[in-house]
Design a protein around this nucleic acid. Sequence first.
DNA 1: TAGAGTAATGGCACTCGGTGCCGAATGGAA
DNA 2: TTCCATTCGGCACCGAGTGCCATTACTCTA
Lengths: 214, 214
Amino acid sequence: MALGAEWKARLYGNDSATPARGGRKPVTSRAELEHVAFDLFAAQGFEATTVDDIARAAGIGRRTFFRYFPSKNDIPWGAFDEQLDQLRTDLRAYPVDQPLMDVVRAALVDFNRVPAAEVPWHRRRMALILQVPALQAHSTLRYANWRQVVAEFVAERLDQPVDALGPQTIAYATLGVALASYEQWLRDESQDLAALMAAAMTGLAESFTGVRTT
Amino acid sequence: MALGAEWKARLYGNDSATPARGGRKPVTSRAELEHVAFDLFAAQGFEATTVDDIARAAGIGRRTFFRYFPSKNDIPWGAFDEQLDQLRTDLRAYPVDQPLMDVVRAALVDFNRVPAAEVPWHRRRMALILQVPALQAHSTLRYANWRQVVAEFVAERLDQPVDALGPQTIAYATLGVALASYEQWLRDESQDLAALMAAAMTGLAESFTGVRTT
DNA sequence: TAGAGTAATGGCACTCGGTGCCGAATGGAA
DNA sequence: TTCCATTCGGCACCGAGTGCCATTACTCTA
């Protein structure tokens, strides 16, 4: 379950400067398998689609499927971990005098911005992740890395250890904001994801007004 | 995975006024199995312990185990869903003029109060849930019910639909506060869980001060 | 052009969680 | 004792995931 280190090297590209001298060429790609799988999911549902089905539809062996994805549950996640590096960078690109939660909110919104052309695809992806129980569960493990990135940034700003209560709480809460927003976004096509996230964040802030902070 | 309706009836007690006329007596109990399982988990770890191991150690058939727990992942959860009814009640026991987030915070703290005698047990339970990847993942599904209870209460107070952005965001964020607090609590024996939750909540509130709420 | 080396493939067998089925065992009530 | 309800647990089966390993396909070099 806990996506080993080999995978990071294996899954997320050729790691730039890999010589890759010889050897047989991969017969397919993560992207292609993802596509094949999504079609099947749409047709028969996630649970009802077996890895065998996917492999057969893609013309590869079942065993080979598991060389492209560590698990069936990972199919919808694409190159998520790669994007985390971007988030890490983005968070630090904001001026240091900008209030902490403003930065977090802005970065959250940015992180989840997708090109208009990919919106329908992204919807399907997120619908799977947020609505299929097995994927809901699995996603927790993926979110952990995301939270870690946020927590690291907050920890720096607050000059606290990463695993201290403050940074961790904020990271968890921010994730909550994101998830609540996504659920809303999936419910209503016409809503703008970025706007929802901003609204959720400020809404949460508002709900705390009047709470004693000492 | 999605714990069916039969289970609610089956797992969580005799449902008070059940006549239970005749029939063979259960040969064991959830509590006993939980105990046997925890011993094995402590000895060999969660992953390394198979359902067969547990059944054998408890002197029951493997098939029977699954009549007591819907899955291996559910072992540490005890009677969680029962407690939710308590939370639901508690939230409404606070005066209506008490600020929303104060009530949520107080209820959160109350919900997680455990008798001193059970603290060591609770620690082991939560250590499993929060640290074993498979259980981390599975717990998401259990938390959903918890969030629902909080969201319902918030929705009433704000006079919004349960699935609106506000209630959902607050429910998610509150869950985050709880999880961050638990992680902290597990890290340091000497900390008081209730105090950590209160601190996390007010800390989150503080972090929002200065955020524009319009 | 014939290797030699390298990397991906995919079949096989296996483990483990989880389920449907069904006969056997158990205990209360008539 | 008989009937009924309920639990037990074996059996067969499914699907995800893994270790092993021979095979295939590709590149580079002698």
